[in-house]
Design a protein around this nucleic acid. Structure first.
Lengths: 117, 117
DNA sequence: CTATCAGTTCGATACTCATCGTACTAACTC
DNA sequence: GAGTTAGTACGATGAGTATCGAACTGATAG
């Protein structure tokens, strides 16, 4: 595919590793906004139970591209970390980072999510 | 003003007391969304310090109508309570209610708001 | 009664966002 | 190489929302 009649993309590379904010760059409003969506709250709650999960292991009521969107929001807010492994992306909660930045916040949200279930 | 040439409004009354959700009706996603705006976060943080405050006692960088909007969002989410007194509205945090519904959540957000300040 | 004050209501506007479908890509399998 | 798999990229769309200004209201002060 080096000879398509379209010019090569000048933007960011597709296979670039996913970007995660530095601990200090994690903003409270951003985290709260990321957690204020029911689907993302569900992702975070399930992620809190286990270790690393691929995107497709969640049975979410949305199509793939919407799924990508939600994981990107969570990643951009600093809530989850995404690691490339072969053809899948493994997602995990940034528990330690969030705990250092906003002590008690994630636990409070998680137990609230359970009780509101 | 009882004889304007316009028919009387059929909608809700203007002076109706502000509506607050029942404790059980407070939703986690709603609370997180309400707190995910910097202006509202600031209102809540200032409200956490003292008792009752009128809307205008906050020096917010927005006009009055926008102010009304933010207080309505907070009220609708169950975060604050608004009480009519004369010509002002006195707002207070629903600390006890929130603590019962989502233990530790508000405190975690408040201390996070301070540390992120 | 008139004026002021505190706040709401009502558009209007611009921006964000959750969703989808289609096309694409990169790794893996056959 | 041809398919399959697990996503991402890219519009497009519709819903929500943060903002403003102007008009209004209800209580109080003069």
């Amino acid at each position: 595919m080096t000879t398509t009649n379209e010019p090569p993309v000048t933007g960011q590379r597709l296979d670039a590793a996913p970007q995660h904010p530095d601990i200090g760059a994690i903003e409270l409003a951003g985290v709260l906004h990321a957690l204020s969506d029911p689907i993302r709250l569900r992702i975070v709650a399930e992620l809190a139970a286990g270790g690393e999960r691929s995107c497709s292991s969640f049975e979410l009521p949305v199509v793939k591209s919407t799924c990508t969107h939600h994981f990107r929001v969570l990643r951009g807010a600093g809530v989850i970390r995404t690691r490339l492994q072969g053809k899948t992306r493994l997602n995990s909660l940034r528990r330690a980072d969030l705990e250092r930045r906003f002590p008690g916040l994630l636990d409070a949200v998680l137990s609230a999510a359970v009780s509101a279930d």
